[in-house]
Design a protein around this nucleic acid. Structure first.
Lengths: 221, 221
DNA sequence: CCAAAAGTGTTAGTCTTACACCCATGC
DNA sequence: GCATGGGTGTAAGACTAACACTTTTGG
């Protein structure tokens, strides 16, 4: 098949849903949009893709320029090719999911006026079709967090079990029994004690744990 | 951002990995390629996408023209935007996974010289980057078959438990105990007895089952 | 000493696994 | 009657779920 007409030429954009976990809250990175349409709305980071690079490369380069996130591991989630999703321009979007550890996330005060981490349960007004994209990747994020492989990437290097439990309660949308959660999580053999304590919250300080170096992929829930 | 140069214009193709299950064997639909390069190799069904349709619509239309498969439910798996994956033409591929019930699959004798169902463990020489795409979607197929939601789409309307067991052994890459498999599968409550028997194989005839009308999504393995 | 949050153990029920023999059919 | 493949039950072990009290800290 030979095709060469204008009717078949698309622009391609890569869109990033970047998540972090902060104190057991799951947060996503959004930018304040300053251009019409959707001026003042929040949007996901994105970039156009040239024919000399892959969609993922283009996005990683953009994320490095914009936020100094270097070489994030980005997972492709889906795409959107609805005609006219961008006015007067045939643009296909490829959606990516990535994790930013809280260490990287916390360094981002320099861009705090234009970009911000939002709790996924308290999202602002979102522009374009990014709301839909976001909802879709959150589902995938949840799926991923039910396996151990990516825990290390998204959870802080030192964490407490109550903190991780809060994240899972948020993901699963229900309360978990503290004793059972502990037993289960410890028995997975993924974490080790640091002999240190987190005194930043009220009440009895919680033990700090860290993930072991090599984490096998196990189902957690 | 305003972009309008040739450097950003891509062609887009949708590629289909269509699976069926035949006697407990998982098979994929391939076409014999008659053009250079890769003449004589087998390839996945595919089509180019115009700017007036979504990738999925374009593919469904193509599959209807080519095989009379009407409105398949296609799941997007991933994409490939490696520059030069097609010589001299910037083409991004979007990969889809679909199921064809054995009833539809069996009607396909009319195209049997150019298209054929291949057991996923006995694939022929495959052209372009389709081998890679195929391997990738097979992984996704496996994942999907571990949930009940899509069973009805891919398994024959009447099936025997040994047949379904063979499919799972093929997916999981290990032998399963017949008694335990039965107990598990029946206890899921997804199937009902047809009071009929399959006498097509040697030995004692196997009971035929069918899926119930409403199947909830449960983890099978 | 009081409020807040973290830590701990036991038991009952459910699910999973391992395992061996008999049954219905075609040749 | 024998080869082929299908159907059935039981017991031990692993995992899950439910449940209440004690510990450590800050104010």
């Amino acid at each position: 098949m030979k095709i060469n007409t204008k009717e078949y030429q698309h622009y391609v954009e890569s869109i990033a849903c970047l998540y972090t976990i902060d104190q057991g809250c799951i947060k996503v990175l959004l930018l304040k949009n300053e251009e019409d349409p959707y001026k003042g709305y929040w949007v996901l980071p994105s970039t156009y893709v040239s024919i000399h690079e892959t969609c993922k490369e283009a996005l990683n380069q953009k994320l490095e320029e914009q936020f100094h996130f270097k070489n994030l591991e980005l997972d492709e989630i889906s795409s959107c090719s609805t005609p006219d999703r961008v006015i007067d321009m045939p643009v296909i979007a490829i959606h990516y999911l990535g994790f930013v550890s809280d260490l990287e996330a916390l360094q981002q005060e320099e861009f705090s006026f234009v970009a911000q981490w939002f709790d996924i349960h308290e999202l602002p007004k979102i522009g374009y079709d990014h709301q839909m994209i976001l909802e879709n990747t959150i589902e995938h994020l949840k799926e991923k967090l039910l396996n151990s492989e990516i825990l290390k990437k998204i959870f802080p290097s030192d964490f407490t079990l109550p903190e991780i439990q809060r994240a899972y309660e948020s993901i699963l949308g229900k309360k978990l029994d503290r004793r059972n959660f502990r037993k289960k999580f410890i028995s997975l053999g993924l974490i080790e004690d640091t002999n240190d304590y987190d005194t930043s919250r009220a009440g009895r300080p919680a033990k700090l744990y860290r993930f072991k170096d090599d984490i096998s992929n196990k189902k957690i829930f």
